[in-house]
Design a protein around this nucleic acid. Structure first.
Lengths: 335, 335
DNA sequence: TTCGTATTTTTGCGCGCGTAAAATTTTTGT
DNA sequence: ACAAAAATTTTACGCGCGCAAAAATACGAA
């Protein structure tokens, strides 16, 4: 940078100032730099920058399971927004594991990020580790909330998801039973169950929850086996099944197909199946899945917006705000 | 580090040496450091390390489209292997775009990585940019090959995929026609088409390729629309369709379902559909997809192994080697 | 024109570490 | 037990830059 500054006829700190904010130097100075820049194509050393900056331009994005297209999709959107805002996003994948999540937080700490967007594992998270992290680093939680952690939470309104699917299913046929994992990894699942029970009572219908066994993140397989078990033992007390999430529903559809059960709302169909999330593949299941869609764009947008505001105010938020976006019902052929 | 060295009764460079390789200091010295380490939990500053090291421990992993579960899966495996080898993997996503891919390479260059594992976009890649990059940074290509670029290529043997599916389909029923995009993004697609034609000729059957329109990475939707078009116009001249890849096949299955066509090999089925890749979701399609599976583990393992060897030898390879792993046929219900 | 203020540029310093060469200690051979 | 060789530790220096304070310059009003 010393050389380059000399070549552009300025001192090094002036050039440094330019790279931190091109608007912060006089127009004539900027022109000098930009001319020299074209001729010598110099680029500042990232490591030296980050070592010396009080706050880096790094932003961490932590998702629980990147192989899940839902997280791949939202991570992609968030990444793009951070990039546009002039930050350097680092996507980290917890692989569904507690140790990996804690390790990710450690690695992030070393990157001295200006802020972090964290979608925690949920039940499997090391709450103590996350709380300590949030105390040190400005953090916005998204997707799943942990009580009081982080400076803010941005996510989807689980009640809105379930209300819309239950309303639709009740209006168009038999009230649904609810299909879920007995020990859901994600806190959203519990909220959805509660919302289901409340919604059914509002409709004057008797709620019925089918809880299946299974741990880990292989939801499709868990759903498939759970559906086989439920169908064999007659646990589905109605002809309408509302799944906690789309990945379970994909498993249910596979099980129904394997048993020759026709799914859909037409005549000749044995079962209606609906779900929540609008997983990127739910358009292509057979039949296509009726589901409640996340407002991906709003969640990603507001999460990033909140983090940027948090960074500007020096990592302090007057009060922890939880922002929830409602779902959009997507009616397809399955229910 | 100065302080910490004093606390452990040593000089700073000795401690530095320890962190670069704990084996490189005397046992007594190491014990001193490790005792102090427990009491004060000091950690070296990554930025300062990387700034001064001749070669960093960073490794870049570039994939064309991370929202595709196939790439999510293989990136995950590669990431884990790099991590175990003591490197710091950085996953970068080209989002299916030429500019993003070039930008990723630029960002990587700035990280001064010891090596890079690159799965290029293929047809959309900026070949000049990639070649320049490979000259500067030790690079191993994987998944899709670019002529002569990088120090080595590790991928799957497309001929093996197609040979096995074609053999199986011919043996068990009518020889297949081949369903693909007219302008595939990925060079593997072309190899698969050629392998299909050769395999059909070996079987004494007439090859028939159905090429559909569509650009981008929304393969399921492209496959769905293409299948509708082909079914309407009678382009499928046989009752057996071999898709170039699973994501197209998922679209074909959706189209068949929408038209009430039963897919499978049993009586009463109108169409057999098979494919290649063993996409993580192909187990859960309706019917489950018969496909040829990548040897994910071998490809990921050998790619990392090759890169580590390349790094050890200072980025030079006597000769560019291309290593291909054969497929495993996975027979499910669709064909 | 001149002075005062606001903006811009420069001076001087230090960040936290890697590394080559020098100094020291330990090991080996006799 | 002593010198030479090998292994280890220390000295000394620099990496490439951000940042605070000082100096210089630009701009507007009297």
């Amino acid at each position: 940078m010393e050389e380059f500054a000399a070549l552009s006829g300025l001192s090094r700190p002036t050039v440094s100032k330019y790279f931190n904010d091109p608007e912060s130097v006089r127009a004539t100075t900027r022109r000098k730099i930009e001319e020299a820049l074209e001729r010598f194509d110099y680029r500042p050393n990232i490591f030296a920058i980050n070592q010396n900056r009080r706050l880096t331009k790094n932003v961490g994005i932590v998702v629980p399971f990147l192989a899940d297209p839902f997280f791949a999709e939202i991570a992609r959107k968030i990444e793009a927004l951070c990039y546009e805002a002039g930050f350097r996003p680092f996507i980290m994948n917890s692989h569904g594991g507690r140790e990996q999540e804690s390790e990710n937080l450690d690695s992030l700490r070393a990157l001295k990020p200006a802020g972090v967007l964290l979608a925690p594992l949920g039940r499997a998270s090391d709450l103590g580790a996350i709380e300590r992290f949030c105390r040190d680093v400005p953090t916005v939680l998204f997707d799943s909330n942990l009580d009081g952690m982080g400076a803010a939470f941005v996510g989807s309104d689980n009640a809105s998801f379930v209300d819309q699917t239950v309303d639709y299913l009740c209006r168009s046929g038999e009230p649904p039973c609810f299909f879920e994992m007995r020990r859901p990894a994600n806190p959203n699942a519990n909220k959805r169950r509660h919302a289901y029970i409340a919604a059914m009572e509002r409709h004057g219908a008797a709620p019925h929850v089918v809880s299946i066994e299974g741990d880990g993140w292989a939801f499709e397989e868990i759903g498939r086996q759970g559906a086989h078990a439920a169908l064999s033992s007659g646990d589905f007390t109605t002809s309408t099944v509302l799944c906690s999430n789309d990945r379970l529903a994909i498993g249910v559809l596979a099980a129904c197909y394997e048993r020759g059960l026709r799914v859909g709302r037409g005549p000749g169909s044995a079962l209606r199946v609906a779900s929540h999330d609008d997983h990127p593949f739910s358009r292509f299941t057979c039949p296509a899945l009726t589901t409640a869609a996340h407002d991906y764009t709003s969640v990603a947008g507001y999460a990033v917006e909140t983090l940027l505001k948090l960074i500007e105010t020096g990592g302090q938020m007057p009060t922890r705000r939880e922002t929830l976006f409602p779902a959009n019902l997507v009616v397809r052929a399955s229910a």
